[in-house]
Each structure stands twice: as C-alpha cells, then as structure tokens.
Amino acid sequence: MKPDEQSKLKFESNYKSFEWLCIQTKEARDSFNAQPYKKDISILFVPTDCELLIDFNAYRTTKPTLFFCGYQRIQLLKGINAISLNYSRDFYCIQIHDAEVACDGLLFQNAGQFPATELSPDEHSIIENLFSEIGEELRLKDSSMEEMVRILLKQIIIRATRLWKQQQLPNQMLETPAEVEFYRNFNQLVEIHFKKWHSVADYASVLGLTAKTLSNKFNRLNLIQPNEIIKSRILLEAKRLLCFTDWSVKEIAYELGYEDPAYFNRLFTGKVGDSPSVFKKKFNEGKNVQ
C-alpha cells in the first residue's frame, strides 16, 4: 500500500468482523500499541528490523516475518510499515476449518513454540501481494468480497504453515506426516484441557500412551518436553490473568485448577523467578517481565 492510501479498512456483519490495518507512522503504531489485549485473531506482517512484544516475550525481526496471535497482547516497539489482519472467530475459525488449513496446534494454540514465520524474498513478494489483495477487496466492497477475503486469508495461513514446519520442526518429523499430526494433536489437547489436566500422564492416557512413552517420543523427535509445554501454557494464562484482570492470586489458582493456592504460588515463583504478586506489581509499574 502507498502511504497516501487508506490505512484502515474494516468489514462487519452480524458477529463477523475483519480489519486490515497498515501501520505506517509512529502515531499509528502508538494507537495500535494502546490496545491492551487483542481478543480477535491477529496476523501481523512485519518488515526487517522491527521489535515486538507479544504477551511477555520480546522479538526482533531479521527478515520479513509473519506473527500469528490469538488472545494476546501485541506491541510494536520499533519499526513501521507493518500490516495487521484482525478478525473474529465468526469470520474464520481455524478449529472448525482445521481440515482446510491444518494450522491449529502449529501457528495457533502452540504453547511450546511461538508461531513466527520468516519469509524468503520470493515468499515475501507472494505474501505482500496477498495482503494487498485483501486491502483491495475490502475497499471494493463487492457482494463477493467476504468470501474472497476468506480465500486470500486461507492462502496466507496455508503458506505460512508450510514454511513454519520447514523452519521449526525436525527433519524426521517432516518426513513422517503422522508425527506432525501427533504433535498438533498434543498441542490442541493442551489448549483445551490445561486448566484441569496438569500432568503428562493426563494427556498420555488420551493418546493411548504411558507418560514415559510420550516423553520419550518427544525426546526422540527433538521437541520440547511435554511437561514443559503444559506448564508453559498454564503459566502464560496465569500471567495474563495477573496482568489483565483484578483477580486475586487465590482466584487465579482456582481458575487454573489448583486447589492449593500455595502450591500454585510455589510453581509460579519457581518457573518465573518472581512470585505472582511481585510479577503483577512489576507489570503495573511498567517494568519488563517475562
């Protein structure tokens, strides 16, 4: 998009919404950052040498990169000329349409590996064109616009999923599609059940394995251990609730399935390095927390 063209385009119909936002100025970036929490799905197309804060982790791009976010706090700390697609699950739900794009548990709902996809020059050109085409469709407001935007969105997701697997997964997994599906399935289960299932054994039993076999399988595939993925998801939700709600530590512990708040407090402190109350205090004071 050219600098003098419209930088924000939006479609809304009943519960469906889709927004195309081009962040071209510092003022636009500040406005984007002012949103404390994004409840819609977001795909952020970021150029080289940008710095971002997503949830509680910092990233710096060395290549044009796509970031895939759902229910996350996103801040663009350095750089402009980024484009953000924000859409409701009623517009396009990846869980319902999983067979179409096969990204659930990889680009989204993946507590073990954050979904950032770097783009080669060729892929950058293709993705840039797809983002531009979405902007043109929203501007035209043709009767078929909604479905065309959905088709273009799916192309972005499918291409990014293929690239992400090539960049993030071990070669032995790519050679065996069943292993990729197994990994996706595990991540999906974690996202659904992390508030009540806290042990590897809980997930292993559903997958028809013992806890030891599941851990050995992840080790053989050079993946982050399942126990770490489970705990990472629990702690991420704890951080979100601490920083974006007025719930007490005890209420958060109960929400995450811990009947003993003291145990939850010890778990959080041991993994994060600060107690829940100190973490919240630092966040409210504007200090960097991870």
Rank of each mutant, 00 (worst) to 15 (best):
G208F: 01
I54D: 08
I151S: 13
V289D: 13
I192W: 12
V101P: 06
D274V: 07
A116R: 15
N33K: 08
S275I: 02
Y258D: 07
Y258T: 01
P261I: 00
N227A: 06
D98C: 02
A102T: 06
S17A: 09
A111Y: 10
C50I: 02
E179R: 07
A178W: 11
F45K: 14
F18M: 10
K195N: 15
N110L: 07
T25R: 10
L138G: 13
D90F: 09
T117H: 05
V200Y: 01
G79P: 08
N216W: 00
K141A: 14
Q72C: 15
Y183W: 06
F11R: 08
Y203C: 06
T245I: 03
K287M: 12
A160E: 01
I83K: 05
A238S: 03
D122R: 15
A111N: 13
E137H: 04
E146P: 10
I151K: 14
G257M: 05
R184S: 13
S144Q: 14
S215C: 01
F68N: 02
N129V: 06
N227W: 00
W247P: 00
N222W: 03
D246R: 06
A211V: 00
D274M: 15
T176F: 12
M173A: 04
I74C: 11
L223M: 05
L235T: 01
M148W: 06
S84F: 04
C50L: 05
Y183C: 03
L235G: 01
Y258L: 04
M148A: 14
L235A: 00
T269F: 03
E191P: 12
R139L: 14
I157Y: 02
N129Q: 12
Y203L: 05
F279S: 04
F18E: 09
D274R: 10
I80W: 00
K78G: 03
N86M: 07
A253I: 04
L119D: 13
L209S: 07
Y263R: 13
E123Y: 14
V190C: 15
R29V: 11
K231S: 12
E51T: 08
E285Q: 15
S205G: 01
T210F: 06
N265C: 11
Q290L: 07
K212S: 07
K63D: 08
F218C: 02
Y87E: 10
A99Y: 08
Y15G: 06
L242S: 01
K239F: 01
S232M: 02
Y183K: 03
E285S: 15
Q168E: 14
E19T: 09
V249M: 03
F32W: 11
N110E: 07
I41N: 13
